[in-house]
């Protein structure tokens, strides 16, 4: 029963909470920190070290928001959530923002009463197999047993894909990511499926990572990004522009290292760093919000490089490169 108590509690919170306040920013300023929903440990996205410090590109979104609001990127408290707990936690007001490799889909954006503030990682679903299985393409997977996590988009994509290609399959869905990894490692499944970035991250947890490979096939679009509750435009804006600040900073070549020397530069950079205009005021945060983000968290490229492009993940920018460099990361201008 313990497993559902947390869900039950959140559902009842949802049922009786006088109403989750519409003014999340005021609440957050009042309590002095951002309550951020993250994964239970996905290398590169949201993971904690043995001292309990969180890091990852998803974590950086929360730190950026805290930097914008409090000028202190450490003013964040984290709530680790499994895939199936995350939306109820957000809806019920237990967390202020969900930044947990969450795919932007129509249902989540509408029926779940949520809003996606942007995309911090463009991903797609893939397959991980043992090398000695001798499979080189997903179309050779007919009849395979597929391990995945409950409450994810992957559960649906995999059934779409196998049915569309007239392939038999059996799906084995676990509640927690660690159990998926353990079961796949124990040979329960031929295939482990989730977002490709997740596959690279989870592969590092296997007993012998080098004995497994990610197949080239990408079977879905998985735009991952931070999520907030519907109906609070101000908070939505703070979330969305914290991300846009990081992307714009990379595009303008402003990094945590060179930010001092970029001060007093060209007009666009001046606007970015709050030396001109009233963008912070309009957002309801400090005038130097974006400068705070870049100096404390870094720009998008720095965050990516620090968390994803390092061993053992070694994920390349790919489509997550800036639009100006052939990718699709693109942020509206600060003006």
């Amino acid at each position: 029963m313990n497993k559902i108590t947390s869900t039950v509690m959140m559902a009842s919170l949802l049922a009786i909470s006088a109403s989750t306040s519409a003014a999340t920013l005021d609440d957050v300023i009042g309590k002095g920190f951002v309550q951020c929903g993250v994964s239970q440990g996905l290398p590169g996205f949201s993971q904690f070290d043995d001292k309990g410090n969180w890091s990852g590109v998803d974590v950086d979104i929360c730190r950026a928001m805290a930097a914008a609001i409090f000028n202190d990127s450490e003013a964040v408290k984290y709530t680790p959530l499994s895939a199936k707990e995350r939306f109820t936690a957000l809806q019920s007001g237990e967390i202020d923002v969900l930044s947990r490799n969450t795919t932007w889909t129509a249902t989540r954006d509408t029926a779940l009463g949520l809003n996606f503030a942007g995309v911090n990682y463009y991903d797609g679903q893939g397959f991980l197999v043992r090398k000695d299985l001798g499979v080189n393409d997903a179309l050779e997977l007919g009849g395979a047993a597929v391990c995945t996590q409950t409450g994810t988009t992957t559960e649906l994509n995999v059934s779409d894909y196998f049915r569309a290609n007239n392939l038999e399959y059996t799906i084995v869905a676990y509640e927690k990511a660690d159990e998926v990894v353990a079961a796949y490692d124990a040979g329960r499944c031929d295939v482990y499926t989730t977002d490709q970035s997740g596959l690279y991250a989870q592969r590092t947890k296997l007993k012998d990572p080098s004995a497994h490979k990610v197949l080239p096939n990408v079977i879905s679009k998985e735009p991952l990004g931070p999520v907030v509750r519907q109906g609070d435009d101000q908070w939505f804006n703070v979330t969305r522009w914290s991300l846009f600040c990081m992307i714009n900073a990379e595009e303008m070549g402003v990094t945590s290292k060179n930010i001092k020397s970029k001060m007093g530069g060209d007009p666009a950079t001046k606007r970015l760093l709050g030396e001109e205009g009233s963008f912070g005021e309009n957002l309801g945060v400090s005038p130097t919000w974006c400068a705070n983000i870049v100096s404390q968290v870094g720009n998008y490229g720095e965050s990516f490089a620090r968390n994803l492009s390092v061993p053992p993940l070694n994920i390349s920018r790919g489509v997550n490169e800036l639009w100006s460099k052939g990718g699709i990361q693109y942020a509206p201008p600060i003006r």
Partner: peptide, 24 residues
Amino acid sequence: TAIAYPELVSVFTGTILNQTGQAV
């Protein structure tokens, strides 16, 4: 639900809740 046996809690409050979002 921890070991992927698809009983009520796993299927209904796990997968279906997540897809419809209708927790209550």
